[in-house]
Design a protein around this nucleic acid. Structure first.
Lengths: 290, 290
DNA sequence: ATGGTCGTTGCAAATATTGCAACGACACTG
DNA sequence: CAGTGTCGTTGCAATATTTGCAACGACCAT
């Protein structure tokens, strides 16, 4: 609601795409050059933008530092990480951790299938919210009205023929996910990639994060991947327990009384979902690969 | 120089210390609650701050996404190139820039020597990973398990009698490189070619690239080439600084800074490895510039 | 029920921001 | 080498924007 700040902050995502000079910033902001200059100066004083030697602006070191602190404050990630790597070492596939925030789902951690690759590979980017397993899990957990509102505001890109086509289908899928407590993405984003995921829940039972395992068709079929579901759920539950148990309730003046209650079932169901097949038909009929 | 934006941006480092409610933000900003509220709202609309269930504000994940996007769009080569050419013009020898990717080290930029004798290398082609200075630098920076895994999977061709013979020798060399912060290739790839290199580091301290200076024996001896090491390291550090977006330290809120930003000089810590010399003792104290 | 805190909103005053025009610096071109 | 263009920068007046206040409703605790 503050025009000046609004304009200034609009510069950030603009510069995230790459360096830009004053004129470009002013144009894409729709303001006079002098205005853009003063805005950039303020941003610069705070270290959020950096001026390189060719006088062009780009995002500055301070922003990276802040981002660093921002993720460190997400203690879910710290708690989850060992579990993710353990799972990765057991099954070998790529493991993701994601959170929902402000109508977006963001990867906040990732363990590559090959080696413990650095965190800066893909995390931090918004996920394909209409198809990703983690996105389904997180959105399915939203209260009904918000869930509906978000679903109807989204675009539904047809990444593949299996992508979620529209809001109605998405909401139906979310209902299924909500009921069964896990989610899949079977070629919805990339034709040959399948995922299975499960939610991480806090003390109040709400999903604070979601994790998933991804593998290409050529390595494991969708059916084989679903075999790993119990393992995935067990890992997610383990993270949930540790997250809930630590009870990182800050200096909240007032509602500090929260019984350490594990939300749902603590009993890890070792049941292979072969018979527990989801209502939506599992398209294990591969197109090309066998 | 924009008060509104200045105040708004001051909220960010404030929230980086931990979640805070409206009153706390207003107090520590020195403004009325209503003002703080409107600023926070604007920040919120841009996803830079997030409101948790207890209505307190904390840094938003979008901040992280923003930084992530910026890093991905950062072009090391673009930033490094002017520095490389400058170095080349000063010393005349061939300068290389390389990155590590998928178990390979690739040259991504090269400034040719102005001497008639040139060495063979091609931008985009993998380097001799077991002997090249840039390869040593980049591999030395990998986490221990991955470093070991990569080293043991490599072939160790005997390009010359000085080539790295096996994984054990290579890992030992990498340990040395890791400790001293620079690397050499003394006739390990071609008998008559020597190189000295230094790493380019990002905000997180990781080596995002490595650069080296190469010269044939007939032009300069290995000892003479090592004389250039401080210059190489300084160049690499300069690139690192620019790549990281090092900006003048943010002024304290309320303290008005001078008109134009004074270029902060004095490199942080450019430790010249004078006495820390490895096998070959280099009598280097200082270079031309002071 | 009551007093306290906290977040939120409307409004008028006033401050801070905006756009303009002009300047100096620089690069490129004729 | 002058000329023309772009680019970043600054002072200034007009104005739009922000600000602080006071009051309201919600909530919690006493």
């Amino acid at each position: 609601m503050s025009q000046t700040v609004d304009r200034a902050l609009s510069i950030l995502p603009l510069l995230a795409q790459g360096p830009a000079d004053l004129g470009q910033v002013a144009d894409r902001l729709g303001v006079h050059k002098s205005t853009a200059l003063r805005l950039l100066r303020t941003l610069h004083e705070h270290g959020l933008v950096h001026r390189q030697q060719d006088q062009r602006y780009r995002l500055g070191a301070r922003l990276f530092a802040l981002a660093q602190e921002a993720v460190e404050n997400l203690d879910v990630r710290e708690i989850a990480h060992p579990h993710l790597t353990a799972l990765n070492e057991e099954i070998g596939h790529t493991v993701h951790l994601a959170v929902y925030e402000e109508n977006e789902v963001l990867y906040i951690d990732k363990v590559e299938s090959r080696y413990p690759v650095r965190m800066y590979s893909r995390i931090g980017k918004p996920v394909a919210i209409t198809v990703a397993a983690v996105a389904k899990l997180l959105l399915a957990d939203l209260p009904e009205p918000e869930r509906r509102a978000v679903a109807e505001k989204l675009d539904y890109p047809a990444y593949t023929s299996r992508s979620t086509p529209n809001a109605a289908a998405f909401l139906k899928e979310l209902a299924t996910v909500r009921e069964q407590g896990w989610a899949t993405d079977l070629g919805g984003h990339e034709e040959s990639i399948n995922c299975v995921g499960a939610p991480v829940r806090g003390t109040d039972g709400r999903a604070v994060a979601a994790m998933s395992v991804s593998a290409p068709n050529v390595v494991v079929t969708a059916e084989e991947l679903l075999t790993l579901l119990p393992l995935v759920r067990r890992t997610a539950d383990a993270i949930s327990r540790e997250y809930s148990g630590t009870a990182p309730v800050g200096t909240a003046p007032g509602t500090a009384a929260s019984s350490t209650t594990v939300p749902s079932n603590t009993a890890p169901s070792t049941t292979v979902p072969s018979n527990t097949a989801p209502s939506t038909t599992v398209p294990v009929k591969d197109t090309s690969e066998g």
